[in-house]
Design a protein around this nucleic acid. Structure first.
Lengths: 161, 161
DNA sequence: ATTCTTGCAAAGCCTTTGCAACTGC
DNA sequence: GCAGTTGCAAAGGCTTTGCAAGAAT
C-alpha cells in the first residue's frame, strides 16, 4: 500500500462539502455515512457486489440500488476512482491517496499499486506532442504476481516427478 | 496512424493457420472470411455493433452471435486486440501493427495512437522491481484532442460576445 | 411541507449460450 | 457423414431507473 497524502478534511467531511455544494443540495443520509465510513476504514479495491457482501457481514445494510447510486456520487465527489478492468467496475480510494497505477495479477486478481513520476512525465510529453489535453489516465499492467509465479513454478516441478 | 510492421502472412492466412492448429481443427467459413477481410481493409477502432452496421452497409451479413464468436477467435489468434474503455469492448488490429497505446478524446471519442518505447521500458522496470511478470498492459489516456480543444475555445470566445 | 433518498422490481445494455438446422471437409 | 458453425431467441451478468413510500431539512 502506498503512503497517504496529507488532507485536511476527513472523507466524510469532504463528501458533505460536495453534497451541499450541488446546484440542488443533496442530503447526507445514514446509509451514505455507513458506506463512506466502511469504505474508508480499509484500503482494499472493491466492486459493488463485494462491498455489499462485506458490509452485510458487518451488519450494515444498504440496498444494491443505493450502493450504486452512492458510489456514483462518491466518484463525482472525488473520493473514489473507477477502474475499468473487465466486466465489473472496481473502485479504489482517490481522496487522500497519491496518483498511481496498477499491476493486476491474472491468477489471484490482486492489485499491486505503484507510483512512478517519470511515467507521468512521459505521458505529459506525449500528450503535448499531440496537442492533447490530459484529463486522467488508466494504466493497468496484467500479468502474474511474484507469489503466483512461484506457486506456478512449484507446480511445474511437481508435474515432472 | 502508425506504420505497419512487416509480416509474412496475410491476416487471412494467419487466421487459417490458427484455426487449423487448434486441438480440434476449426473451419474457416464464408462469414469468417468476410469479417477478416472487412476488418483488415481499414484501420479503424470498432466495437461489435459498429462492425455489424458497417458490414451491413457493405452488403455483408453476419449474425450478431457469429460476430461475437468470430471476434473472440480473432483475438485468440492474435489478429485483434481488445480495448476495454467503458461499457462496450473496442477492438483494434494487433497483427501487423506495432505495440502502442492510446489517447482517447472524451469529446469526439477519437482514438489517437502513439508509440513510446521509453514508456515500455519504464513499465518493465517497475514490474521487475515487484517480481511481476508482465503479460500485457492497457494504457488509455483520456482528455481532449487538439481539434476539440480548439472548438471549445472558439465557443468560449463566442459566449463572451 | 417540500424535496431528496430509498428499496423493489423491472428494464437496459452488452455479451454469451442452448439448440436445431446447416455446412465445410 | 461427422464435427464444427450458424442464427435465433432466450438467458446472463452488471448496472440503471420508474415509482411509491419514507426520511431529512
Amino acid at each position: 500500500m502506498l503512503n497517504a497524502v496529507q488532507v485536511s478534511l476527513t472523507p466524510e467531511q469532504k463528501f458533505q462539502e460536495y453534497l451541499s455544494s450541488r446546484p440542488r443540495v443533496q442530503r447526507f443520509t445514514g446509509q451514505q455515512k455507513d458506506m463512506v465510513r466502511f469504505i474508508f476504514s480499509s484500503h482494499e479495491h472493491f466492486d459493488a457486489d463485494s462491498l455489499l457482501e462485506e458490509m452485510r457481514k458487518a451488519s450494515l445494510v444498504v440496498s444494491r440500488a443505493t450502493a450504486y447510486r452512492t458510489l456514483t456520487k462518491l466518484v463525482d465527489a472525488g473520493l473514489l476512482r473507477r477502474l475499468v478492468t473487465g466486466s465489473r467496475t472496481t473502485f479504489e480510494h482517490d481522496y487522500g491517496y497519491p496518483q498511481h497505477d496498477h499491476l493486476r495479477c491474472m491468477v489471484c486478481s490482486k492489485m499491486i499499486e505503484f507510483e512512478n513520476p517519470e511515467l507521468e512525465t512521459k505521458l505529459k510529453e506525449v500528450a503535448l506532442a499531440h496537442g492533447f489535453q490530459i484529463d486522467k489516465h488508466s494504466l493497468i499492467v496484467q500479468g502474474t504476481c511474484a507469489q503466483c509465479k512461484k506457486a506456478k513454478n512449484a507446480r511445474r516441478k511437481l508435474d515432472l516427478i
